[in-house]
Design a protein around this nucleic acid. Structure first.
Ligand SMILES: [Mn+2]
Ligand SMILES: [Mn+2]
Ligand SMILES: [Zn+2]
Ligand SMILES: [Zn+2]
Lengths: 164, 164
DNA sequence: ATGAAAATGAAATTCATTTTCATTTGGCAT
DNA sequence: ATGCCAAATGAAAATGAATTTCATTTTCAT
């Protein structure tokens, strides 16, 4: 799925990679699970991209590094990564489960083009404030929210104007 | 799915019902489709509740009125209702497609309890403003958005406190 | 009334997700 | 180092919501 990046960070560095692995393996130990090469490879692959990947998309990337890793393992590892906060689900309109990594990354939201599926990430502290305010107002202990904007991107607008 | 109502309207009146049917049948005519009893029954059933219904849930309600109407017809009619704006999909965290009717109804958002799945509807013009602002800022022609807050409701908080 | 186009609903299909299970592996205790 | 056993793996099967197919019935313009 195409994505325009607003904040252009360098790709995850070696040290950051280690740091994230640290977090992951602490989590595994905590819940009595084991360290495996497959999990290593999957985490590394996941951190290398800033895309919003479906399980299958991540599986295809992982397979390039180690063709013996199975889809099921990717699927299960993605759940573990979500458990320890390194990954989070992004509810995109194609309905498939998509994840993005949450390591050293600013909190952001998405605006998605309904014509070409391209997405832009944007930052909006106001939305976070709203979560808090509304939670308070209605006596909810608000823990997270979900905000995305749909519309037509500049490119698609240009294209359709040309088509007339 | 349990739901707490914030705005307590009376149930859809007969005249409103007619008005909505009008809209529906105008739409059908426009796209060359036909008027059927099944579609009537399904629309009526759908307007009678303010819940966020899955296709199957609506099907079960419809079946009480006319046990011969099939699931497929409900499924297809729900799509038609969405096409003409009488229904809209509500992305709830259970992952199933859920719809709510949009007839004579204030624009609202949802706060969902992650423990008991109860939802409250709330009104927040600020969110609408944000859609507009952010669209402008990033050159998107923003047409709609999606905002929900997750957390723990008062009841569930009380329950878990009692359990300690 | 007639016929063409659309609607219906049961059944089949699709496809992402999740589970099962036989086999292999990691890592702790000895 | 060796053995043990719980956990991990991955292929295959199962699940289940969403969608399509198709034989039959219904609508509606003429
Ligand atoms: Mn993102
Ligand atoms: Mn609602
Ligand atoms: Zn676009
Ligand atoms: Zn609750």
């Amino acid at each position: 799925m195409l994505q325009t990046r607003i904040d252009d960070h360098a790709p995850t560095s070696r040290e950051s990679m280690r740091e994230a692995q640290e977090i992951f393996y602490k989590h595994l130990k905590r819940v009595g699970l084991k360290h495996t090469d497959q999990r290593d490879t999957i985490l590394r692959t996941f951190l290398e991209t800033r895309d919003h990947l479906s399980t299958d998309e991540l599986f295809r990337l992982v397979r390039k590094k180690d063709s013996k890793i199975g889809f099921t393992t990717v699927y299960r590892t993605l759940k573990l990564l979500a458990e320890c906060g390194l990954a989070s689900a992004v509810p995109f309109p194609d309905g498939m489960a998509r994840y993005e990594h949450q390591f050293n990354r600013r909190n952001h939201h998405h605006m998605v083009c309904t014509e070409c599926d391209a997405s832009v990430e944007f930052f909006s502290p106001e939305v976070n404030k709203l979560e808090e305010e509304i939670g308070r107002k209605y006596h909810f202990d608000a823990t997270r929210h979900n905000f995305q904007i749909y519309g037509v991107c500049e490119d698609c607008r240009k294209k359709s104007r040309r088509a007339i």
